[in-house]
């Protein structure tokens, strides 16, 4: 392994205040408990394991990120949690009760835009309550509050095609929250957005999380995003997807963008990088050597 360019602190070094924060978090009730979860897919050449023996717990009001190399089964994991796929072994408990199938108690925000194009912003947010049979001005008023919370009051009567990508995902968050879920599952929700919008959305999401005290499980492949958002980061390794390490992020809250150069931030990021890319430079990463000169562009 190549030696690090700069000396970083050990990511596990926590100040007493940070340690105290995590100790208190772990005293809170467990919202989501994943026990020995496994998932295999049948292929023509035999069964392939996507997830194997995944064990973790998410505490009340925790913000947990799941990160891992591509193909580690992050998406399979969150789809099982949402009930869109069934596990092959193990079980998922929500507030101690096993989950079966999708339900409004686990709100989900997808990477692709999933707003219903035929409904306005307000009607999209009212979709969940309406499925429960609720209707009337109370539901509408509540929908307005959710839209207001994500800062889109001016667009409550717009159709999704009139909104930008970031706005669509804000509505999707409001729509998932309108069901008052026990946990909000987010599957790379900002993956399709440009860098500026993504940074803005991350900051919006942290504000919403703090204002509402909700529990969030967030899938990402972006190291900065994970460290910026999470209390704890679950690192998965690929083939099959297994829990590699659960990292407690010691970067203090409230988080700000300029914390990205603090020693805690860099140390945490460095640790994840080591886990995801164990060899920092392998033969596969190097291109064969070769020099070409553009004709007429020679430099003496």
């Amino acid at each position: 392994m190549t030696p690090p360019l700069i000396d970083t602190i050990d990511y596990r070094e926590q100040s007493p205040a940070v340690k105290d924060r995590f100790d208190r978090m772990k005293e809170r009730p467990v919202v989501l408990s994943v026990e020995n979860l496994g998932k295999t897919f049948p292929t023509p050449t035999g069964e392939v394991a996507a997830l194997k023996g995944v064990d973790f717990e998410v505490y009340r009001r925790e913000f947990m990120c799941v990160i891992g190399p591509s193909g580690c089964g992050k998406s399979t994991l969150i789809r099982i949690l949402a009930g869109l796929e069934t596990e092959s072994s193990g079980q998922v408990l929500l507030d101690g009760n096993p989950v079966a199938g999708p339900g409004p108690d686990r709100g989900m925000v997808f990477q692709s835009y999933t707003l219903f194009p035929w409904l306005t912003v307000k009607e999209n947010v009212m979709f969940g309550p309406k499925m429960e049979g609720k209707s009337g001005s109370a539901v509408e008023g509540e929908a307005r509050q959710w839209i207001d919370m994500v800062g889109l009051s001016r667009f409550e009567n717009s159709y999704p095609h009139q909104l930008s990508g970031g706005m669509k995902q804000r509505v999707a968050i409001a729509r998932a929250l309108a069901n008052r879920p026990r946990i909000l599952l987010m599957d790379e929700p900002f993956g399709a957005l440009d860098a500026q919008t993504r940074a803005q959305m991350q900051s919006y999401l942290l504000q919403i999380w703090r204002n509402l005290d909700i529990t969030i499980l967030f899938i990402t492949h972006d190291l900065d995003e994970a460290v910026f958002l999470a209390d704890r980061i679950l690192v998965l390794k690929a083939n099959p997807g297994e829990v590699d390490e659960i990292i407690e992020v010691s970067v203090p809250r409230p988080r700000r963008l300029d914390q990205a150069i603090t020693p805690e931030f860099v140390a945490t990021k460095h640790r994840i990088n080591q886990l995801i890319h164990p060899e920092s430079e392998t033969e596969e990463d190097t291109l064969p050597f070769g020099r070409m000169t553009v004709e007429g562009d020679d430099v003496e």
Binding site: F116, F127, G128, R175
Partner: peptide, 20 residues
């Protein structure tokens, strides 16, 4: 994904067909 989103929002079979 539209159908999956509707399911996570609590739509049942009949609602999936009629509302989505």
């Amino acid at each position: 994904p539209l159908l999956e989103a509707a399911q996570t929002l609590g739509a049942n079979q009949w609602q999936l067909v009629t509302k989505v």
